[in-house]
């Protein structure tokens, strides 16, 4: 019979991951403190693409990857809007997606927050004046924070989430 403690004390099998980004770490630990306090240790995000060019999705999913790994800061991406505190919307809202965007928002429990990610989500970007889009996300949902960029980098998105958490502390205590 193997003593299970040997699994704990034997050398780790994973390789050392040589990567450090002090700026990210500092931002992350500050964020973690805020998430702990404001959102009870866990901030659940639902991502929604309302008509982006797909690069923003790639950057958001990079946040969950091994480099940024934002789950260690208490932030997780959830599959259902019913589990989400924050809706992260990318892309100008197309006519074909408008109904789905509204339904997703309505499915979220209150209090809920909306973040527009990328230039097109902020104000319609290059699609301004196109018959096929309504414009930025604020045309259809109440937007709390806008993160500009084409696309914004993972760190910029994280900074945006941080400013939302700071801001929402006040709005949560109001209600």
């Amino acid at each position: 019979m193997v003593n299970p403690l040997t699994y704990v004390f034997r050398p780790k099998v994973t390789e050392k991951f040589e990567f450090s980004d002090s700026e990210l770490e500092a931002l992350g630990s500050e964020l973690k403190t805020k998430v702990n306090r404001v959102f009870g240790h866990s901030l659940a995000i639902r991502e929604l693409d309302s008509g982006s060019d797909n690069s923003t999705e790639i950057e958001i999913s990079n946040l969950a990857g091994p480099y940024y790994d934002i789950e260690r800061f208490g932030i997780s991406f959830v599959a259902s809007p019913r589990h989400a505190d924050v809706l992260l919307v990318t892309g100008a809202v197309t006519l074909n997606m408008a109904e789905a965007v509204l339904k997703t928002y309505e499915a979220m429990p209150s209090p809920k927050f909306v973040v527009a990610v990328g230039d097109d989500a902020c104000d319609g970007g290059i699609y301004k004046g196109s018959y096929a889009v309504l414009g930025g996300v604020d045309k259809i949902l109440p937007v709390d924070i806008k993160i500009p960029g084409n696309p914004p980098s993972p760190k910029e998105i994280l900074r945006g989430i941080f400013s939302l958490v700071k801001k929402s502390r006040y709005s949560l205590s109001d209600s």
């Binding site: 693409d49 008509g51 982006s52 892309g91 100008a92 197309t94 006519l95 074909n96 997606m97 789905a100 290059i126 699609y127 196109s130 018959y131 096929a132 889009v133």
Partner: peptide, 11 residues
């Protein structure tokens, strides 16, 4: 598909 139709050709 075509939920993301943004009208690129017309634009």
């Amino acid at each position: 598909l075509f939920y993301k139709h943004r009208g690129i050709e017309k634009l």
